[in-house]
Design a protein around this nucleic acid. Sequence first.
RNA 1: GGGCGCUUAGCUCAGUUGGUUAGAGCAUUAGCCUUACAAGCUAAGGGUCCACAGUUCGAAUCUGUGAGCGCCCACCA
Length: 889
Amino acid sequence: MIELSASYDHKSYESQWYESALKHKYFSSHVNTQKVPYTILMPPPNVTSQLHMGHGLGYSIQDLLIRWKRMLGFEACWLPGTDHAGIATQMMVEKELEKQGQTRRGLGREAFFQKLVEWKEKYGGMILDQFKTMGFSCDWDRLAYTMDPKLSEAVRHVFVELYKEGLIYRGERLVNWDTVLQTAISDDEVENKEVNGALYYYRYPIDGTDEFIPIATTRPETMLGDTAVAVNPEDERFKSLIGKKVRLPFVDRLIPIIADDYVKSEFGTGAVKITPAHDPNDFEIGKRHQLPFLNVMTDIGTMADHVPEPFRGLDRFVARKEVIKGLKQLGLFDEEKSYKTTVPHSERSKTIIEPRLSMQWFVKMKDLAAPAAEVARNGQLQFHPESWKKTYLYWLDNIQDWCISRQLWWGHRIPIWYCSDCQGLSTGIHDPSSCEHCGSTRLKQDEDVLDTWFSSWLWPMSPFGWPKEGDQELKDLDYFNPTDVLVTAPEIIFLWVARMVMVNLKFLNRLPFKHVYFNATVCDKQGRKFSKTLGNGIDPLEVVEKYGADAVRFTAISLAPLGGRVRMEVGDFENGARFVNKIWNAARMVFQHLEPGQQLPRLSELQLSLADKWLIHRLRETSDKVNKNLESFRVNDAVDDLYHFIWGSYCDWGLECAKTALSGESGPDKLRALSVLVYTFEGALRLAHPLMPFVTEELWHKLPSHPDWGMRPASLCVAAYPQEHSIPSFEQESQDWKIVQDIVSGVRSVRQQMGLAPKQELPVIIRVDQGISSIVAEASEWIKRLARASQVSSGPEVVRQGQSLTAVGKGFEVYLPVQGLIDVDKERKRLQTEEQRIQKILSGIVAKLENENFVARAPEDVLEQNRAQRQNMEEQLHSIRKNLSALED
RNA sequence: GGGCGCUUAGCUCAGUUGGUUAGAGCAUUAGCCUUACAAGCUAAGGGUCCACAGUUCGAAUCUGUGAGCGCCCACCA
């Protein structure tokens, strides 16, 4: 026998097999024109992040796909890497500094940058090691990092090209200012949240009169920067006031009353204070009316120095209260109404965004977006689930320019130099030594860095060597890009996915990937997203430690439908562990009867039994389903198919049926059973390997090779994946076997319902239709074993004996003669219930078939189905009635 | 305000072009240590498929309306 421990201990095998795969370079990918490439880009996690369940799920799916394609003979490339994650990483290090009583400004730019590099060196590799414990088969030789020299060069290249084309420009715009991080952020990094705020009503005195104009606002503190009051031109209440001036309290400034269609008369008081430097709408109005732009706030969200006392230097929220207090003192304040409103918050620092006028760099998006929309419209780029296409298109069709400058120190510095002499701007792939306009050497580089996404959007290109130098051929790029599928979270469809499409189309004139798969959001049982602040997450490393990587991968994927969200809790992973254990024990069962390296006969040399053929056919069906489901990204369905084959078919029926043959002496029968079991088990291992690489690899090496699987490679991860056409088909036998299963289940059910002890063996008498008589006869040994019969007799002519329990199915009737053992009343009741159930179904069918419309309009196959069904039910009903009357004898 | 999606067993969800008696896993109940596995085996119970209306011979599935929930987008002070 082949030795196997009593239970699977993941710790003994996982790291060992992973190391072995790395040593043999099974995960490496090369340009190979003999093979078709299959490429997946790993969404690069933040370099300092820790593995969480979102990664656990998303990357397990990617590994499932990449391992599957690798086994199918594709040149599989899964490109791993990390993202420097400008804001996130800088925040972490700043927090760390804070603990030591330091600040980044105190440290200075260079020293701070150095700290970040050190931090990255120290913690940057952690998540990659965590990937290894999950068993992810990335091509580590291609490991990339967004701040690698080569990738940084690509960033530079793209910036310069787009700048020269006029697609990157600098401008003073109202941007989303994060007062905590003290940087601008893009629209896509802002989340709008509904808050319970207030709408404040007060008045401004109109100059030269004793009249007032009433105002309503949510942000009174910005009144210090008001440069107009606007009303609707059609508003009769205010028509006469247009053109007059109001005297702004506290600052004693005169500002005009203007008319603009934007103002809705019915909202608030119908008059709006206009603060062009602090509100997006006011900004637009300011531009339309050439109003002054007056910024009243500092970088950190306090009132600017030019603001009068007592407001100068106050935090913006304190200033709000003080302004209200001041207005009250002046008798200008009317009332405060509670008001629900949406307020922009920074995704990173969670602080309220201050719209703020400042000089920033932007990418013009319209021209880039149009082709990216087109490829989705014409179906070249496909989304799974497809509904995301609309979202994607909506964003592209309404795209705003992208603010790419960040007032941070961590990231790619903007490659723009300002000339101190002619004020001209210089740029270049290499740092310029002199001004490209006047030749002056007095150049100063822009202080800002680029948005992190400005490097991640190059992910499909730069890690494969783009841009090329000179005449160099970019073989890798042309071979692996376009990649096949991007598996990522829907949250970053705009931030990342759409932008990759744009830039890849722009510079390579082709798609970065053909399919985008959005994986489910991981939530707790209450449906709340896993988050650090809630602390409701499940640490994948903890569950891997406890249950093993295979179990975690299995569980995560089997729970996750396409898109949507998946609710999980720690206990769910026990299902995975149980499944892994089941496979292990199935192997033990088979291994008991095998010798290491044992030779087995080919299937074609054997007289296969009905059960053998059924099991082989089930493997064939399962292979087909799994491949199809994976092809259409229905990964959880593929996992489900696998689970049901292994557990429900292989173990529950295949192994149980084989026990008779296996328990006997060595001989042709036993050898036949073993050959079939080994063949199908190997099929199962191959099918399951992309999902559960470790347990399958371990068992596969122990399992004697089967001739029908051909020559074995050195590892299961490069063995051929089972496909429908490579497995023998036994369609008819498979159908036949289902009758045997029905008989067995029928007997078991009757026995249990009647409370017969499992140990009590009974004779089983089966009356079968002529057509299936030989099948049942062949199956009598299995029926005997599985239904715990003392003896089985079957045939079209057998007759009921005495008082029997009966089970009735399609084409058969089973009697269990249990004279004296049965409770006649109970059996009568059971049969009557059954009679009613069948009668009800039958009436339904009969009603249908008597409906002229149905008969006239239903297609022939449906009619045929119903007629057969009716006959079947009538026969069953007849049998039951016969048995009922016999009971009374 | 706009868009997308969801509502099926106690729970989490399948149900792919309308067509046998609507399924699975978990949970529950009952009986079993039957020689791989009690992390197991066998069986049972449990659903007016959110509501209403419509199309159809036939609707969980298609259409409309409504209710509840979720997500995304959006400049109403």
